[in-house]
């Protein structure tokens, strides 16, 4: 009888532990990631927009998943674009800025193989740009991009 009770207690503990671990693991890829990423906004910048991306792992090298967003940027403004990745996903977020079909800025520098946390963009042409978020090596990932504007 005692051993049965102990076994039941152990079972219940495992179930509760699984529930907690699952909740914790998935709690990173949500609004809390946006909030924590916004703490990277410098004191002389104003938050403008958030871009959230959750992507599956790439099935082939030629077909990397990408999340795409549009944004109007105005000439004369200096914008900051930062990317933050959820820690419980293996992918490290890469953020790129496109003007038409041409990439004009990105967090990943192929030369030094460095993925910066963000970049500052001094805009001299008012236009509709594209923000792309993908993950290094096409890994499964969850990230948020934050657009802010220097005051």
């Amino acid at each position: 009888m005692l051993s049965k009770i102990l076994n039941m207690k152990r079972t219940i503990s495992i179930i509760i532990l699984l529930f907690i671990v699952k909740s914790f693991a998935f709690s990173q890829c949500n609004k809390s990631l946006v909030t924590s990423c916004c703490t990277n906004i410098s004191s002389d910048a104003i938050f403008l927009q958030q871009y959230r991306a959750k992507l599956r792992a790439a099935e082939t090298d030629a077909n990397l998943p990408v999340a795409r967003f549009s944004v109007l940027l105005s000439k004369g403004n200096t914008y900051n674009l930062n990317v933050c990745s959820a820690l419980d996903y293996e992918g490290e977020g890469v953020l790129q800025l496109y003007d038409g079909g041409k990439m004009i800025a990105g967090t990943y520098d192929a030369g030094s193989k460095t993925n910066f946390k963000g970049f500052q963009f001094f805009c001299t042409k008012t236009a509709i740009y594209k923000v792309y978020i993908s993950f290094l090596d096409g890994k499964r990932g969850c990230a948020v991009g934050i657009l802010s504007m220097k005051k």
Binding site: K75, L97, D99, I104, A105, T107, D109, F116, G118, F119, Q120, F121, F122, C123, T124, K125, T126, A127
Partner: peptide
């Protein structure tokens, strides 16, 4: 083409395209 540089550890992109209204 834009100009990119690293200033104080931060990547800075200076666009050189122009638009006039």
């Amino acid at each position: 083409d834009p100009i990119s540089k690293v200033e104080n550890g931060m990547l800075v992109i200076v666009q050189t395209s122009k638009s006039d209204v």
